[in-house]
């Protein structure tokens, strides 16, 4: 999805229609991230709405020269979701609410629903896992390498290799699409 500069400019001028359009374009991708991190549909919906409220309020802070709109929105969504999870965690620790202790196990979403799709599936298992941890689970590199039980350097090279392979498969897809378009012509 390409960044629509005109649309973002309108958003920065508080145009509700622009927000609506950007929501239509980006909310499924962002919801995919949020729900995979927090694993609770109700919370994920609230967090998605909250993310777009922040996008609306802080639109003027987005600088297109620094990166894509999606990257900016992704960081907002991920931070909100991780903050939310931290709040629940601290609530459990301070209040000792036994109700919440099994929270991590009590996933409210079907696991199949959260399965990863697309070119990611063509990657080796460990590459796929590495990407999933940092990108779809919201872990930092330092947290993720412990999770995978490999040294940080190895983990970083996993990510690098995974990204390279993804790049290749995306390029292939583009080539195939171009060939297909040529054939149709």
């Amino acid at each position: 999805m390409q960044d629509d500069k005109a649309l973002i400019l309108k958003l920065q001028n508080k145009d509700e229609a622009a927000l609506s359009q950007l929501y239509d374009n980006y909310s499924p991708a962002l919801y995919g991230i949020i729900i995979r991190i927090c694993k609770d549909e109700q919370h994920a919906q609230n967090l998605l709405q909250d993310t777009f409220m922040t996008i609306w309020d802080k639109a003027h802070q987005y600088n297109p020269e620094k990166g894509k709109f999606y990257t900016w929105a992704y960081r907002i969504a991920k931070n909100k979701t991780l903050n939310h999870l931290r709040q629940i965690k601290s609530l459990i620790q301070t209040e000792d609410l036994s109700v919440y202790t099994n929270k991590e196990d009590s996933i409210t979403v079907e696991p199949e629903y959260l399965q990863l799709n697309g070119c990611l599936k063509q990657l080796d298992q460990h590459h796929q896992k590495a990407i999933e941890l940092v990108y779809f689970k919201g872990l930092t590199h330092r947290e993720a390498h412990k999770e995978m039980d490999v040294p940080l350097g190895t983990f970083k090279s996993y990510i690098k290799q995974a990204v390279k392979k993804l790049q290749l498969s995306y390029d292939k897809t583009v080539v195939w699409v171009l060939i297909f378009i040529e054939l149709i012509k």
Partner: peptide
């Protein structure tokens, strides 16, 4: 390139949120 690939990956793994979320937001 990295950004573009990450974005593509995200769109491949997109999940449609319920329509009520957008209505609430607007």
């Amino acid at each position: 390139t990295l950004e573009a690939n990450f974005e593509k990956m995200a769109f491949e793994n997109a999940i449609n949120p319920p329509k009520a979320v957008k209505m609430n937001l607007m």
